[in-house]
């Protein structure tokens, strides 16, 4: 029983690192623009399909797809930014419609190009087991996704605090007029937040392909998960994203272990609602990009 619980928590912890990687791009863009990119999950999925194509068509390790996937996904993210930027009125609201539509277009394009088939990696290295302390089991790819997720968030945190582009993103997220008075160009900060969100989505997509299976409709589910974690975190807080992602993932894993895996999403939704009732501004509420 104890072993089972520990294993469930361990599995949840590992997927929490991956969830955080998926969610943080959404939080970053929300910070600078107060825009929720509803095509974010589709961008992650796009990267996963690039990884699939690299493996199946070129016969290469899917991780070698990173540079191409990054070029594709960052371009798509910047294109989304420029379209969002052209919204003249009520950007916060109208961008929801715009990005939701772009998500549908992306899903259907993937469907057209790659069909509705389910794909997963055929590189065996990824699903070999790793046992820690004789009891905790995972696939190599799950451990890799966790490490990549945590390192990426750490890197992002460093970048936001120690580079001028990063600082401008924090300043714009905190107080737009004050940021302008520091000589910051808000448009540039917004563009960087979309570009970096694209890079993070690419990493997430490649991890998605190596740990799990992909097919066109799952992009939408990823967006929802990212959105829930971002709200749970308290819109725009990066440590909050990490904590929120672990919370959701561990609850899901415990539910799947002790009840049914079909109930796990329901359980995480339940926690989400409870947190919002108790702490309306999220776990790390009222803080912006930290």
């Amino acid at each position: 029983m104890l072993e089972l619980t520990l294993q469930a928590i361990y599995t949840g912890l590992l997927s929490g690192g991956f969830y955080a990687l998926v969610a943080v791009g959404l939080a970053l863009i929300f910070g600078t623009m107060k825009v929720i990119n509803l095509a974010h999950g589709e961008l992650v999925l796009l990267a996963a399909y690039v990884a699939y194509a690299t493996e199946s068509k070129l016969g290469l390790n899917p991780l070698l797809a990173l540079p191409i996937a990054m070029a594709v996904v960052v371009s798509a993210a910047l294109l989304t930014y420029f379209l969002t930027n052209h919204i003249k009125k009520d950007r916060e609201l109208n961008s929801l419609i715009l990005t939701f539509g772009l998500g549908i277009i992306l899903t259907n394009s993937l469907l057209m190009v790659f069909s509705a088939n389910i794909y997963s990696t055929s590189t065996e290295w990824f699903f070999e087991g790793v046992v820690i302390g004789d009891t905790l089991f995972s696939m190599r790819s799950e451990l890799l996704a966790f490490v990549v997720g945590v390192l990426s968030l750490g890197g992002l945190y460093w970048w936001l605090n120690h580079t001028w582009h990063g600082r401008a993103i924090r300043a714009v997220s905190s107080n737009l007029d004050a940021a302008k008075l520091m000589g910051m160009n808000p448009k540039q900060a917004e563009m960087w937040s979309w570009g970096v969100a694209g890079i993070l989505a690419t990493l997430a997509g490649c991890m998605l392909y190596t740990t799990s299976v992909i097919h066109p409709p799952i992009g939408h589910g990823l967006t929802i998960k990212a959105f829930i974690i971002t709200v749970l975190a308290g819109m725009g807080s990066i440590p909050g994203v990490l904590v929120g992602a672990f919370l959701i993932a561990i609850i899901e894993s415990l539910t799947a272990t002790f009840f049914q895996s079909s109930l796990s999403e329901l359980a995480s939704m339940g926690i989400f609602l409870v947190v919002l009732i108790v702490l309306p501004s999220g776990l790390f509420g009222n803080k912006r990009i930290h």
């Binding site: 600082r167 300043a171 107080n175 004050a178 940021a179």
Partner: peptide
Amino acid sequence: LLFGDLSVEENLIMG
């Protein structure tokens, strides 16, 4: 017109 959620030192750095 400060960056209310940042520390004193971070506000100065933004300057």
